[in-house]
């Protein structure tokens, strides 16, 4: 930018895709925190659910306890990984699907389509916003878990390394799936009605609200098709004791499978986003 000073008549080069993408991230993130709906149904939703589950089921004792009542983990500790996974899904899929469908129907996308903003910068902005908000959400969730619910967090670096890749992988996958799903609602107004049930059902069958290991096998198999089950499983491997692995479908955390499933969904989401995204609804 300083080079322009040397030129008599500044012929600025067009801003780069990356610079504009970063500018979009800041702008999008600011707007995210100004939207009450998004804050409630995306950002704070996992907090609300964690609070409800902890309050409702704590009296029935620890989960995974020995017959004599010792051992196991508290209800809050058991649900924390699921809520982290739900946060990743909500921040990506629900947030972007509703957001972009709204932008499509209220003219925001059409206006952007008439400017020299590259769609790539737009996507960078959306994915970056998902990333920033998901990190804040997960950080705050862990803080609440530790300080308010007194849940012991892992200390081993390997656990946090697993957390990092499951989180990054899961959030990016969710973001692409959100972009892809934004093509489904016919209007911004119907977006929530289309997206929320999908996300909600996924949370029920994927072990976010219900203990995955207690679900019937057919439901477990069904959930295994979708990415949320794998995000939740990856998170359980980080936050639950090793002994819980035995209760999983194959009696282990299956981390390579987590990586594989998320990878497939990432590619699928990327392709669907590319194919379905338009600045405006095309005419005949």
């Amino acid at each position: 930018m300083s080079a322009t000073v040397l030129v008599a008549r500044p012929q600025n080069k067009a801003p780069s895709t990356l610079v504009l993408g970063l500018s979009r991230i800041g702008y999008e993130t600011r707007l995210y925190f100004r939207s009450p709906d998004t804050l409630l149904f995306t950002f704070f939703f996992p907090f609300i659910m964690l609070g409800i589950f902890t309050a409702a089921f704590s009296s029935s004792g620890n989960i995974g306890a020995n017959p004599d009542g010792t051992g196991g983990v508290s209800v809050g500790a058991y649900y924390l990984p699921g809520m982290l996974a739900a946060g990743m899904l909500l921040s990506g899929v629900q947030n972007l699907a509703v957001d972009i469908a709204g932008e499509k129907s209220d003219g925001t996308l059409k206006r952007l389509g008439g400017t020299p903003l590259s769609p790539l910068s737009y996507f960078l902005g959306k994915i970056g916003q998902v990333f920033v908000t998901a990190i804040l959400q997960a950080g705050l969730l862990l803080l609440v878990a530790r300080l308010v619910l007194d849940i012991a967090l892992p200390t081993e670096p390997e656990k946090w390394a697993t957390f990092a890749w499951v989180f990054v992988f899961g959030v990016i996958t969710s973001a692409f799936l959100g972009i892809a799903l934004s093509a489904a609602p016919r209007s911004g107004r119907s977006a929530t009605a289309v997206v929320a049930p999908v996300v909600l059902v996924l949370q029920f069958i994927s072990g976010v609200y219900l203990q995955f290991t207690t679900l019937p096998e057919w439901m477990q198999n069904l959930a295994s098709i979708f990415p949320l089950k794998w995000m939740a499983q990856g998170m359980r491997s980080v936050f639950l004791p090793e002994s819980f692995a035995a209760a999983e479908q194959s009696a282990s955390w299956d981390l390579p499978w987590v990586a594989g499933a998320l990878g497939i969904w990432l590619v699928l989401g990327l392709v669907l986003s590319r194919v379905t995204f338009r600045w405006i609804r095309r005419d005949a």
Binding site: A14, G107, T108, L109, R111, G114, T115, P116, L117
Partner: peptide, 16 residues
């Protein structure tokens, strides 16, 4: 995009 950079567009309906 270079072409769009030379245009200004005020559409009939506002973008929100």
């Amino acid at each position: 995009l270079d072409w769009k950079a030379r245009l200004g567009i005020v559409l009939q309906t506002s973008g929100e």
